[in-house]
Amino acid sequence: MNDSWKLYLHYLGISIRAQMQYRASFVMMTIGFFFTTVIEFLGIWAMFARFGSLQGWSLAEIALFYSVINMAFALTEMFARGLDTFPNLVKSGDFDRLLLRPRSTLLQVLGSEVSLMRLGRILQALPIMLWGAHTVGVVWSPGKALLLIGATAGGTCLFVGLFLLQASMSFWTIESLEIANILTHGGTQTAQYPLDIYRPWFRIFFTFVVPLACANILPLNVILQRPGATPLLGALSPCLGLLFLGVAMLAWGQGVRRYCSTGS
């Protein structure tokens, strides 16, 4: 296990060095990611400037929702980029090479590409998070801080799980299925707002099927001390993301087995 981390760090170092060979392009892309999301948040700000609040939620509160989900998504795009480009690996036959090495295929795929430029999006989400928390006047405690980190981590696990499910689909079909994009990009858009503004069936879907709630109202209600917040549920909510990732890993394992029996 320990050895796997060492190997992953080795991959990481290599990936960073490879990207630093094209430094100018790295800087430009990072700045690009920073500004596209800044503009997105300006849009939300403009809406609140016009309407004041959204079903009782203030802009500063929304800022927390926005930053948690965006940070989770950016971390996923940064560290699970290899899963995003995975269909190419299968199509080109290079996945065979990963099977020929005595390591977990997932570790090798994740190691194959780390997209540093997503730092731009993380750098943008962080100040929004701090501003939001400050403006709302969150009374911080170690538990709350931990929960905020947990919410981001849970969201990241969930998105990695979605990426993993999408990647696993290429074991079954060579056609690129954009269904998962609806859930990843669409999910990010959705969970920028508290899930309780949506219709019940929508909320149920994003709580029990694709549990985006784990990086949304479940922990954030607790942090914001909203009425009706359940601290225990909030504290456990990051586990939902982890659980989802676990299920996705099972699907991946099935996919690899299928690949070995069909050879395509």
Binding site: D3, K6, L7, H10, Y11, I14, R17, R101, P102
Partner: peptide, 12 residues
């Protein structure tokens, strides 16, 4: 040489 070093770690 960097590929070789990575393979060294992959194969232990």
């Amino acid at each position: 040489v960097e590929s070789l070093e990575l393979l060294r770690d992959i194969y232990g």
